[in-house]
Design a protein around this nucleic acid. Structure first.
Lengths: 253, 253
DNA sequence: TATAGACGTTTCATATTTCGGAATTTTCTG
DNA sequence: CAGAAAATTCCGAAATATGAAACGTCTATA
């Protein structure tokens, strides 16, 4: 229940009170959050002093106070950009019928910020937050292709090129040629280079930075090669590019 | 700004982020809450670890994360704290004799936070927590009309306009014209655009956000067209507006 | 392409706060 | 009015927060 760190632990109490149907007593909350009684008491006092909770007229129970509502409306009126983007991913999955993900470059690896799975029984399950090497994934090659050459050289230098499948490109000059093509095409493919049977198409998401546009994230669809061939997947490009534009708009809003 | 005690101080940051219309940088937040830079940095890290905030894909700004939305819905769906609001809805139903509801915008859809039914045998039963598309509901059009233009364009871009009844507006320019009228009139009508036989009138609930007032929720009445015509329903406007003011007052305190 | 400046992050010695077992007071129950 | 249960207060040990300064890193301008 209480997975909050350090100073935010009292917030777990607010969540607990908000989750209850009736105003809660101290004893109920002690049972609910599993923290010693004096501590819960102190936390409740803090939340009350902050105006987030208030006591019921009888003085023995706690309920939400006006400031909690204010905060809630404030949060909902300022809808997280993350959920906006998540909705866009969902729409892509609806349209193309394959899994879709949003990634950023994290060192020499590609990190999944968000992901929506397809509805097919056969599907590749990556979990959000996991990472894959940049040199053998569509998103990763895209980042490498679009970054400043100096930075690219630096990263390639500290990135061991290991063979993960028969198709993995482990020759540096061959990889550089591929990156140059990607820069020209404005999209990248993973032709079973990371995992046999898995193909992927990625497009960049740009953000205005001063006078230049930098590629800060990538949008990609992944599919089993048995359902979508290396060449068929490129037909999804327009859908992906349009969605990328929409997501880019959420970055400046 | 920061009147929170001890362990809850980082919460002031959550409020600050929620109060901004753009994802905030560390420097902006330092200026906003008046706390030393390393401290803000640490608080942000806590909130991020807790899942209440997340970084934008470029890694330089902070925005609300899913857990913040969860918390907000949890707070607003909570009966004890919402009892005042619920009573206001009940009073409206008494006065106008038709169903009344309180909504927020959740992505491209309108979500029912609370609802009180009329006592007539013939009534439309929506349940609390359900959602309807924004472009063809009174509340939804109200939100679209009153939000920042950039945000509106973004949402309209990802919102497929489907014909649900003969009256549904599916032409984008026509919809924009309607939104402009709504902005002028300060109320919105649903003339059987979502469901044949159902008319609806919605007014905004504003919350002070920094220097400007944002529309964070909407209050609406719904009625069968056989009982209240498209034009008659506007006569309920004063009652609705007065109630909206009352609810808004609980948010400014 | 070089360079000044802004911004974000880390460090670390110090000071403050929190923690929770036990004692105490208040409230409920029969 | 006793006895039990719940809420509140105490307080020393332990953990944590604090913020000035230093350090990287990115950005804007020449």
């Amino acid at each position: 229940m209480n997975d909050l760190l350090g100073a935010l632990k009292p917030l777990g109490l607010l969540e607990a009170v908000a989750a209850m149907q009736h105003p809660a007593t101290l004893a109920e909350l002690v049972a609910s959050v599993g923290v010693p009684k004096p501590t819960v008491h102190r936390w409740l006092a803090s939340l009350e002093a902050a105006g987030l909770l208030q006591r019921t007229p009888d003085g023995r129970r706690f309920e939400l106070a006006p400031r909690a509502s204010q905060l809630a409306f404030s949060i909902l009126g300022n809808r997280p950009g993350g959920s906006t983007r998540h909705e866009i991913l969902q729409r892509i999955v609806q349209e193309v019928g394959e899994a879709c993900n949003l990634t950023v470059l994290d060192g020499t690896q590609v990190k999944y910020l968000d992901r929506v799975e397809s509805n097919w029984p056969l599907r590749i399950t990556f979990q959000q937050g996991s990472k894959v090497p940049a040199y053998c994934s569509a998103s990763g090659k895209l980042f490498l292709a679009l970054m400043q050459p100096a930075k690219r050289d630096l990263l390639l230098g500290q990135m061991p090129l290991e063979r993960l499948t028969d198709n993995t490109v482990i020759d540096k000059s061959e990889l550089l040629k591929e990156l140059s093509n990607i820069r020209r095409d404005k999209y990248a493919l993973d032709r079973e280079e990371f995992m046999t049977g898995l193909v992927c198409l990625a497009v960049p998401i740009h953000q205005q930075k001063g006078r230049s546009r930098a590629c800060v994230a990538a949008l990609a669809i992944q599919a089993p090669v048995t359902r979508v061939s290396h060449t068929d997947i490129v037909s999804k490009l327009p859908i992906l590019q349009r969605a990328a534009e929409t997501i880019a708009a959420t970055l400046t809003e």
